[in-house]
């Protein structure tokens, strides 16, 4: 049984086809990267999976359950967690409260009290290394700290599948390496599947994912093992093609 299955997803905005007939399967415990230049439709695909947009065509299955039309708020308790391309903290709340909100309404929603959620929050705040900011308001954090807080918040949801939108944008190479190690560890320890979306940091993709889906102009270009995908002529064409002329 695939954890997540997308069947021929198409999403349009007016005349623009943002996602064009994309199918994808993720198995339990898998970590895959979705790469593609800006505007390739990656974030839109994430929004379809997490229920922010409804697709015009196609179906979304989570653990073989059709969730295509399920409201966004009902997807999180099933085990879908995500972070955002531009972090979206609940600014006036503290880091601890932000992360606790993840625990309160995620897969554990009916099982944890507020106090337990705050304890879970503390655990994940320590895990991402934000312990010094625990009681600070989330609004004034730096972009990288916000990113980490969002990861902690998504983890506190105890998701089965974590969607990470541009997890490493704006980070320096050292941070990227650390993040890659962190995600690999997470995958093992938390037993979750991860879809990481990466715009152009190949360094991260190579170290991170065994499988890569490359998107281009809304459509799926390649879905293969990382080495295969990154040496595929089509990928080199769209992805690195422009650099040849430089």
């Amino acid at each position: 049984m695939a954890l997540l299955r997308l069947e021929n997803i198409t999403k349009r905005f007016g005349g623009l086809v943002a996602v064009d007939d994309v199918s994808l399967e993720i198995q339990e415990g898998e970590l895959i990267a979705i790469v593609g230049p800006n505007g390739a439709g990656k974030t839109t695909l994430f929004n379809v999976i997490s229920g922010v947009f409804l697709p015009e065509e196609g179906k979304v299955f989570f653990e073989d359950k059709d969730i295509t039309r399920l409201p966004a708020y009902k997807r999180a308790p099933l085990g879908l967690g995500r972070t955002f391309q531009i972090p979206r903290p609940f600014s006036s709340a503290s880091v601890r409260e932000n992360v606790a909100i993840g625990a309160m309404f995620g897969t554990l929603a009916d099982k944890v009290s507020v106090d337990e959620s705050l304890e879970i929050a503390d655990h994940y705040i320590d895990l991402v290394g934000l312990q010094d900011h625990r009681n600070k308001a989330a609004g004034p954090l730096t972009p990288v700290e916000k990113k980490l807080m969002e990861i902690a918040r998504a983890l506190a949801m105890k998701p089965k599948l974590l969607l990470m939108d541009e997890a490493m944008a704006g980070m320096n190479p050292k941070d990227i390496d650390e993040m890659v190690q962190f995600l690999l560890r997470l995958k093992e320890e938390e037993k979750m599947s991860i879809i990481a979306m990466v715009e152009h940091i190949m360094r991260a993709v190579v170290g991170l994912a065994e499988r890569v889906m490359v998107m281009h102009q809304g459509a799926k270009l390649v879905d293969a093992s990382t080495t295969e995908a990154l040496t595929d002529p089509k990928v080199i064409e769209v992805y690195l093609g422009h650099s040849e002329g430089d």
């Binding site: 229920g51 006036s92 909100i101």
Partner: peptide, 22 residues
């Protein structure tokens, strides 16, 4: 939980929905 949910939706309603908040 009501208070936490309200804080979340006050700050960012769409993000709150994705976090599982009705």
């Amino acid at each position: 939980k009501i208070g936490y949910a309200l804080t979340a939706l006050r700050e960012d309603e769409d993000a709150a929905k994705v976090m599982g908040i009705n």
